[in-house]
């Protein structure tokens, strides 16, 4: 309720001032009375007003010096130290996180390189296997071809020998036929007739 409270604030002003004034006046009167009594007999030292001025004077000086030292030198400096430490710790943590990220990155790169190398190795092995297979195939083909050639040559030699032998057999046959005919008939056939007869016989099988 802002309206009502501001109204009472206006009432409170003189009331507060009046109460402070009466309080101050009362305190001053009390101090005077105590001061008057302090001369007679030994009073309780903390209540002895003869030392009040000196105590207040030196308290003001010492407290002012303390306040000046604290507010101007000690507290700003300690505040700076604490801030700097918080900064340093934060910075160190950031750095550590950065390093960790870097290390993770490096580990990933390593893993990647490893996987690539493995794949490469597989490729190389495959190629080697294929090359080896091709080479051995080629060798096998060459050997086979060589063997086939040798076989053909051998077959040719055999055929040639056979033909030679056969022609020899014909010559021999005609000679034997001439001799047999001569013995049986006493008449020698011509060589051409004998050869023809042998050929006919050979043809018959």
């Amino acid at each position: 309720m802002p309206v009502r409270s501001s109204g009472f604030v206006r009432q409170g002003w003189p009331l507060a001032v009046a109460s402070f004034a009466t309080l101050a006046a009362g305190a001053a009167r009390a101090a005077e009375q105590t001061h008057g009594e302090s001369g007679e007999g030994a009073s309780f030292p903390p209540f002895d007003p003869s030392h009040f001025a000196s105590n207040l004077f030196w308290l003001a000086i010492t407290f002012a010096v303390l306040y000046w030292l604290m507010s101007r030198i000690a507290l700003p400096r300690i505040g700076e130290i604490l801030e700097e430490r918080a900064g340093t710790i934060g910075r160190d943590l950031d750095q550590a996180a950065e390093m960790q990220a870097k290390a993770e990155e490096m580990a990933q790169a390593y893993e990647k390189a490893l996987a690539e190398a493995r794949k490469n190795a597989q490729g190389i092995a495959q190629t080697a296997r294929e090359t080896g297979a091709k080479a051995s195939d080629a060798q096998r083909h060459a050997t086979e071809a060589e063997l086939a050639a040798k076989l053909a040559q051998a077959e040719a030699t055999i055929a040639k020998t056979k033909t030679e032998a056969m022609s020899n057999v014909r010559g021999l046959g005609s000679d034997i036929a001439v001799a047999i005919v001569t013995k049986l008939t006493g008449q020698a056939p011509s060589a051409a007739e004998a050869t023809e007869a042998v050929d006919q016989a050979l043809a018959r099988g």
Binding site: S50, H51, A53, S54, N55, V65, L66
Partner: peptide, 17 residues
Amino acid sequence: GLNLSFTNTSLWMVIVV
């Protein structure tokens, strides 16, 4: 006429500071 003597209280205020 004011008593502003440096007393044992004052001394200990200085020591405290």
